[in-house]
C-alpha cells in the first residue's frame, strides 16, 4: 500500500533496496577504471547543464547592470552586491504582489487541506454508494488542463464581480488543487489502520474523539506534504492568474515577473534586477521543495514502481 504520494516532491531517493545497491556496487567494481572516470565526467557535465541556469540567476542577481551589459559575461559574482535585491524590494510593486501571493497561497492551503481531508476520510474510511464514481471524477478532474477551462472561469468570475479579487482566484485554485490533495491524503489516511480507531472506541472514546486523538496526529506528515503541494501550486500558478487578475494592482508574483519579460522587448532592461526578482520568487519554493522531498516518494508512478 503506497501511503505517501506527491506530484511535486515525488523523489524516490537512492536508499531503496539493498539488492539494488549491491548490484550497483558489483557492477561498478567489475568495470574498467577508464570507463568509470568517463561516466563520472559525463555525470558532472550533466549536473552542470542542469544547475547552470539556476546559478546564472543568482550570479546575475548579484552583479550591477554595467557589468551585465559588457560584451563578455562575468561568470563569478566577485565584487557583486545585494543592491539589485534592495532595488527590487523598494521598487514599490514587489511588496503588493508578494502580499497578494501570500494571502492567496494561505487561503488555498487552508481550504484545500480542510476540504480534501474530509473527502479523503470519506473515501478511505467509508463504503458508500457513489464512492467509486467520486474517486473516478477526482482522478479525471485532476488531469483537466487549466487551458481547457480558463476562459469559462474568467466569464464566471466576471459575472459575479470577482475579477481581480483574492476570493475569485482562490476559489479557482482550490478547485484545481483539491482533487490531487484528496488523492494524496487518501493514501495517508488509508495507511493508518482503522483498527487503531476501533480499539480506542472499544476503550470508550467516541468516533470523533478516537479520530482526533489517534488518527489525526498520525496524519501530520501527510497534511504537511499536501499543504506544501497546495502552496507550491498556488504560488507558481500563472495561467488562471493571467486571465482573472488582469488589473496591475492585483498582480501575483508570477504576473509581476512577467511584466519584466514584456518590458525586455521594447527596451534594454536591467537583467540584474529581473534575476534578483526571480530569485526572490524562487527561494520559498526551493526551500519548501527541498524540505519535503525527503519524506515523500513518488505517488504518480508508485503503482508502476511497485510492479
Amino acid at each position: 500500500m503506497s501511503s505517501q504520494i506527491a506530484r511535486v516532491g515525488g523523489t524516490p531517493l537512492p536508499r531503496r533496496s539493498s539488492g539494488a545497491r549491491r548490484a550497483t556496487a558489483s557492477r561498478t567494481a567489475g568495470r574498467p577504471r577508464a570507463s568509470r572516470y568517463l561516466y563520472g565526467a559525463i555525470g558532472i557535465v550533466v549536473a552542470l547543464i542542469w544547475i547552470f541556469p539556476v546559478y546564472w540567476m543568482i550570479n546575475s542577481a548579484m552583479l550591477p547592470n554595467v557589468v551585465l551589459q559588457s560584451k563578455t559575461p562575468t561568470f563569478l559574482p566577485f565584487g557583486g552586491s545585494l543592491d539589485n535585491f534592495v532595488a527590487v524590494v523598494s521598487g514599490g510593486t514587489f511588496l503588493p504582489a508578494l502580499g497578494m501571493s501570500v494571502v492567496i497561497a494561505l487561503i488555498v492551503v487552508a481550504c484545500c487541506l480542510f476540504f480534501a481531508f474530509l473527502a479523503a476520510l470519506a473515501i478511505s474510511r467509508f463504503h458508500f454508494r457513489g464512492r467509486k464514481g467520486f474517486v473516478l471524477a477526482v482522478l479525471f478532474i485532476q488531469m483537466l488542463p487549466a487551458e481547457g477551462l480558463f476562459i469559462a472561469q474568467y466569464k464566471l468570475m466576471a459575472s459575479v464581480n470577482l475579477l481581480n479579487t483574492v476570493l475569485g482566484v482562490s476559489i479557482i485554485y482550490i478547485a484545481a488543487v483539491v482533487p490531487f490533495t484528496i488523492w494524496m491524503l487518501r493514501g495517508f489516511v488509508a495507511g493508518i489502520p482503522a483498527d487503531l480507531e476501533e480499539a480506542a472506541m472499544v476503550d470508550g472514546l467516541s468516533r470523533t474523539q478516537a479520530f482526533l486523538r489517534i488518527t489525526f496526529p498520525l496524519l501530520a506528515p501527510g497534511l504537511v506534504a499536501s499543504g506544501v503541494y497546495a502552496f507550491l501550486q498556488a504560488w507558481n500558478e500563472f495561467t488562471v492568474a493571467l486571465v482573472v487578475l488582469q488589473d496591475n494592482s492585483s498582480q501575483t508574483l508570477p504576473l509581476w515577473l512577467r511584466g519584466f519579460i514584456q518590458a525586455s522587448v521594447s527596451k534594454a532592461i536591467d537583467w540584474g534586477q529581473v534575476m534578483a526578482a526571480s530569485t526572490l520568487v524562487a527561494i520559498p519554493v526551493i526551500v519548501f521543495f527541498l524540505f519535503v522531498q525527503g519524506r515523500m516518494t513518488s505517488g504518480l508512478v508508485s503503482g508502476a514502481v511497485k510492479g
Partner: peptide, 20 residues
C-alpha cells in the same frame, strides 16, 4: 551532485525559470 542539480532545476517556479 547530479541529484542536487536536478532537484534545483525541478524546484524552480515556471515563471522564474522562464525569466532566466
Amino acid at each position: 551532485v547530479i541529484q542536487i542539480a536536478m532537484l534545483l532545476a525541478w524546484a524552480m517556479p515556471v515563471v522564474a525559470a522562464m525569466t532566466i
